[in-house]
Design a binder for these strands. Structure first.
Lengths: 191, 191, 191, 191
DNA sequence: GATGAATGAGCGTTCATTCAT
DNA sequence: CATGAATGAACGCTCATTCAT
C-alpha cells in the first residue's frame, strides 16, 4: 500500500471534520487520527492550525474557480455567461456539500473578513471572472451601475443562502429550480 | 435587591466581544471582566453560556422585528412594503454594526440552523411579516412563484452580504445606494 | 404563622440534603433555599459549613444516645442490656434513615476520624453506656477480654452494615431478624 | 512510546491523596503535581476522574481478592476457611493502610452502593469465595441460617471497623489479637 | 437581625503544540 | 522524516462566603 502523500490525507480529514463539526469540533488530534498520521506530523505540513485552515480554504477556492472557468466562454453574451457561472457555482455547492459547509464556516469567521480584505486589494483568478463579467456588464449597460462589491453581493448572497438551505433540507433544489433561481439573481443585477 | 445594571453590563460586554471575536473568542472570564463583574455573576443571570447567547439573540431579534414593524403598513402595495422592509433591515444593520456581527455569528452556528428550522415550522411575529408579504406577492402575481424559502434567500441573502461589506468597509452605503440596492433585490423577487 | 426559629429549619434542611446527596451535593445556597432563609442567614447560626456539619452530627449523636438511654436499666443482666441497646440502635437506624445516612457520611469523612479521636480522649454520655456495659461484661467474665475498642467494633460494625443494607434495600429487616442479628452480635462479644 | 511509569505514578498519587483527603480533597491538579506529571497527562490514562477512581478500586479489589484466594483451600472445614479468610483480609488492611483508606472512601460513596448492588446480582470471583463459604456454612449447619447479606455484614462489619481503628491508632492489633478477633467474628456467624 | 446579590478561587476537563525517540 | 506521549494554559462552571442594604 503506497502512501499517496500524507498531506492529502490530512487535508481531507481536516476538511471533513471541520465541515461536519466546525472549527472547534475538529481538534488536531482527531484530524490526525482520521488522516491516519501522528499528531505531530500535521505540523510538518502546516505551521499551525490557522495556516492549515487558510490553506484548506485556498484549495477549495481554487477548485471552485476551476469549476467556474470550466465551460466559461468570454465570447458569449453577458447574461448567458452570468447564468452559466451562477448555475455552476450553485451546482458545485450542492454537489459538494462538504466543501460548501467548510467554505461557510470559513467565510463566517475572523479569517473570512481578513481574506476578503486581501482579495479586494490583490487580484485572484476566480474573482477576476466576476470582476470582468460585472465590468463588462456595466460597460455594456446590461447590468445596473453599482460598485462591484454590491453587484457581487446581489449575485452571490442568494447563492450562499440557497446552497445552505438546500443542504439543510429546507428546500430541494432541482435543475429547473436552480435555473429559475439564477435567472432571478440576474433580474437583481441586470437592467 | 439585584442591580439590573449588571445584567445590562454583561449583555453589552458579551454582545461586543462575541461580535468582535466570535463565540470562542469571547470567554466568560473576559466577558465578566469587560462587564466589570465577577466571573460567577454572569451565572446569576444566565444558566450557562449557551442560554446567554440564545437570550442575546432573541433580544436582538426582537429589536429588529420591532424596527421592521415600525412604519409597516399592510394596506400599501406589495412592492412598496418590500422596499420599506428591506431598507429598514439594511439600515438597522448599518446603524447597529455590533448587533449585525453578532447576528451573523449566531446564524452561522448550530443554534442558527435549529432556530431557522423552528421558524419555518412555527409562527413568529417578524417572520410572519415576510411570510405574509411573500404569500401576498405570489397570490397577487407580482412576485415570482417560488417556494417561500427561495424568495427569502433571494431577498435576504443580498441584505446580509451588503450589511457585512459595508461594516467591513468594502463599500460605503448611503441612502441612495441602499434604496437602489433594495430595488435591485425587488427585481430579483418581483415579476 | 410564627417562625419556629430559623435554626431548626436550617438544621432540618441541611440534614435532609446531606443525607440525600452527600456533603458536596448540598451547597449552602440550596440548604438556605430549602430552609426558607437567606443564604447569609446560615452564617448567623454557624461560623461556616464545617461547623454546621459538626453541630448537626452532635445533635444526631445526642438523639441516638437519648434513644439508647431510654429503657436502659443498669440492674438487668449484661446480655439483656446488650440486646436492648443493640436492638434500640438498629431500630433507630431503620426508623430514621435520614439520620442514619447523615451519620454514615459523617463517620466516613475527615471529620469522622477527628471526632472519633476526640471521643476516645474525653468522655461522653452515650459512649459511657457502652463503656460501662463492656467493662462490666469483662469484669463479670460474660464478655471476651478484649480492649474496649475491639468490643465496640465487634458489636457496632455489624450494626452500621446492617442499617446500610436495609436502607439500600439489600435486606429487609423485620423485628425477628433484628433480634436474631443482635443475638449474633452478642455471640461475637460474649463468652 | 508511552512510559508506563507515569500511569503508576498517577495511580499512586491518586491513591494516596484520596486515601488521605477523600475524593474532593484530591483535585486532579494536585494528583498530577504529586505524580510529577502535567494535569492533562492523567487524561491519557483515564477518561475522567470517575473512571480513574473506579479503575483504582477495581485494582485494589483484585489485589485483595488475590490475597484472599492465596492459601484458600476448599477442602478444609468451614470454620478454618473462615478464620483464614478473615485474618487474611484484616492483615491486608493493616499492612496496606493506604489501600484500606481508599476502599473505605469508595465503599462509602455513590459508586460503593452501585458496586455492591452489582455484586449481589452478578458473580465476581472474590465475592464468590464468601458466597460459597456462607452457603456451605448454612448447608452444613455450622453457620446461622441468615440471608447471605446479613452474614456478610456480621463478618465484614467488624473487619472494617477493626481495620479503621488500628490504622487510626485507636488499637494496636498484633497477630494474637487479630486471631482472637476473627474467632469472635466466627462466634457471631457460627452456631 | 436578615437578606441574597456578588464574588473569585478553585474545580474537572480540553487541546494546540512540542520534542525525545 | 514521522511519531504520539506529554504538556499546561485556558475553558465553562460551582459554591462557600461576604457585606451593603
Amino acid at each position: 500500500m503506497p502512501k499517496p502523500d500524507k498531506k492529502v490525507d490530512i487535508v481531507r480529514a481536516a476538511l471533513e471534520l471541520i465541515a461536519e463539526n466546525g472549527f472547534h469540533g475538529a481538534p488536531m488530534a482527531l484530524i490526525a487520527e482520521q488522516a491516519g498520521v501522528g499528531a505531530g506530523t500535521i505540523y510538518r505540513y502546516f505551521a499551525n492550525k490557522d495556516v492549515m485552515i487558510a490553506t484548506l480554504f485556498r484549495e477549495l477556492e481554487d477548485r471552485l474557480n476551476a469549476a467556474i472557468l470550466d465551460g466559461y466562454e468570454t465570447g458569449t453574451p453577458i447574461r448567458e455567461r452570468f447564468l452559466h457561472v451562477g448555475a455552476t457555482v450553485l451546482h458545485y455547492f450542492i454537489d459538494n456539500p462538504t466543501d460548501f459547509r467548510f467554505l461557510e464556516q470559513f467565510i463566517n469567521s475572523p479569517y473570512g473578513a481578513a481574506h476578503r480584505r486581501d482579495k479586494l486589494l490583490g487580484t485572484q483568478e476566480g474573482c477576476d471572472v466576476f470582476k470582468e463579467l460585472f465590468e463588462d456588464g456595466i460597460a455594456q449597460q446590461v447590468m445596473k451601475d453599482f460598485p462591484l462589491v454590491i453587484l457581487f453581493d446581489l449575485a452571490f448572497g442568494p447563492l450562499l443562502a440557497l446552497g445552505r438551505d438546500h443542504i439543510l433540507g429546507f428546500v430541494s433544489l432541482d435543475d429547473t429550480l436552480i435555473e429559475r433561481a439564477i435567472e432571478a439573481c440576474w433580474d437583481g443585477v441586470g437592467r
